[in-house]
Design a protein around this nucleic acid. Structure first.
Lengths: 205, 205, 205, 205
DNA sequence: GATGAATGAGAGTTCATTCAT
DNA sequence: CATGAATGAACTCTCATTCAT
């Protein structure tokens, strides 16, 4: 499938890649179809042939970045030791978010658009796996007595998401408020450690 | 001051209010100057007379929403009991963010625009008061032995901001992921309680 | 009349002066009423109070610059010696055109506007004096035998106007074509001499 | 070349033709892009696709009219008899200027704009051919003794340009001053004869 | 006599989208 | 499959002019 992709598939892919770059950078309104076509090295008309409209192309991009996340977020939970699994998860999110700025930005745009394209992109269940994994993890932790009995899966996940995602989503205003460069490795590592500590204290009985 | 404001001041204000509504809803690129003028009940020309350009109007809006936050966020820290002050702060943020969706959205837009307008709007020190207040609060908490000695002001603030702001900023995608309406009062109260607990456990020795 | 001019007359004059500057520089279409008011240090509304409209103000300026010319062009012809009178006239035009760039430009704009405002400004007879003066001059020159008998007043005037006016009106393109700065004193003096010679040879029997 | 011009070239040409008409008539400031598009029978967007901006289109028009002149002005000088060549040149200019009113007007606008677009249009050397031709012509005339030894190429050209160009550039105000229609054939012929005479007397030893 | 605020029409320019080949 | 040309609506911004005081 990847081997023998024709010219058509190649064009389609390069359009998607270009679109991710442009949409992530400028959002739906700021993005220009011309620019996407130019970056993709494709004729503008092809965008309409393959994706129908600017909006549908945007939805394709949204689905693409979410699918990359899905591939990353369940693996770390596999660790037998529940506390180590949490720690690994924190790390995995920091790594993913740092390496996937276009995921961060697309999620932000999408929230500003009130998740209008979320369902159209077929993303309702995109994060069910991590929810299930977290449920299992908490059960194991409670059973072995390393986690509080009354922690709830939703709250843990929301804390986890908030403390990792927000660091990257608000990095520009926060760097100014904190008067330090939060993109630096030290700042990021320090924050990761603290988030891990935070969760540990939150979870322990 | 509000009593005897001339026609000009009234027009200028109504433009700013309309602009906040539209910019918060659609961002810089999505907003239309025509629409702002219409909502303001003012002539489009007046926008340029009073604010110079669409971008400068945007900056004025950004400064306005931040100044509303500044008025709210330091008061709760005044409580003598450090633990109660933290709890009050969490509550204050939930209330503020719930009642000021345009603050949430403007901060999101601004981060997507890489804080381009932050400095122009004279906002570099807009959050210095809360930082100072938090420093004092932690000092008091450590002195009286109710807070850990090694907590850092920056980390506490980032956690606080992340756990409150993110709930509102990502509410649309999160509602879908969590398959529940996070805008509901119960969901919001539950989350507020949990964030308070989280911070308490994080801060205690 | 100049002594005891009230505030009103002063405003009216400063508007006219500002208008000459702006209209000469940018023409009817390029000129901005706001800018004229600003340069005049007057309220924009006053332009309409005193002159009725932008176009009528333009006409007033046109009439003003022509009236300045009229004051200059007949005097030199007074010389008794016809040849000296011609020489003096050439000089007078060079001096006038050099010192009145706004005359040159207003005449150019007006020709491009197909002299639309010429008649409204009451300028039909503005140059009758010089025509009459030239007629007398030629008569005298023919009578004393220093001029050809068949020279015609119209042709002499057109040559005179063309060779003087055009030097200033086309000075920007001509400076580039001739690859020298025609605004320099040397270039201007040389040209004046040559035009004088030209006319002398043209007029002599 | 004209045969097999595509649709694009045809559109581009018709825009240029329309632009020449409108810019010549109304100048840079007075011209409306909408009107040019309408006259060209083209979509307004195409103007920007082909020429980039109103100003660049203006420059293209300026270059176009100058290039038409260049094609006409050197040929007449080819005559072996220097005096006949001068006569032919006068005639050629009268014919050209009469038939190319948009050249006359564009040069006027351009001078009023202080030749701002002259260099951008790559016109610095557009009239070098005629200058060279005139230099040769004068040399021949001096060698054969039919021209004065001390005439200068620059002065002859300036006289020639002034006496021909000015007749057309100032025809509207001059018709009023002279109280006759200078556009009439008789007036024009009479003037041409007189200019020829003028130059002959100016050049002869 | 003079002012500051307001207006509506229209300016140049850009865009997502479609046609014709 | 791919392209270059075209479109019409809409965008930000500006202007001459007038109203209300």
């Amino acid at each position: 499938m990847e081997q023998i992709q024709g010219r058509a598939q190649r064009t389609k892919n390069s359009i998607l890649r270009a679109a991710e770059q442009i949409f992530a950078a400028k959002g739906m309104d700021g993005a220009r179809v011309d620019e996407i076509a130019e970056v993709a090295g494709a004729n503008k008309r092809m965008i309409y042939a393959y994706y129908g409209s600017k909006e549908q192309l945007y939805e394709a991009v949204l689905a693409a970045v979410y699918s990359r996340l899905r591939e990353c977020e369940t693996a770390p939970v596999a660790d037998e030791d529940p506390r180590r699994a949490i720690r690994a998860l924190v790390h995995a999110y920091f790594v993913f978010l740092k390496n996937n700025p276009s995921y961060v930005r697309m999620v932000m745009w999408e929230n500003l658009y009130e998740a209008r394209h979320f369902d159209e992109g077929g993303l309702m269940d995109v994060r069910s796996p991590i929810r299930q994994a977290m449920r299992d993890l908490l059960r194991r932790g409670k059973a072995t007595g390393v986690f509080r009995m009354d922690v709830e899966e939703e709250q843990v996940l929301m804390t986890l998401f908030a403390c990792t995602f927000n660091y990257f989503s608000n990095i520009h205003t926060m760097s100014r408020v904190m008067k330090q460069d939060l993109l630096s490795e030290e700042a990021m590592n320090a924050r990761e450690e603290d988030v891990a500590l935070l969760l540990q204290r939150y979870l322990e009985p």
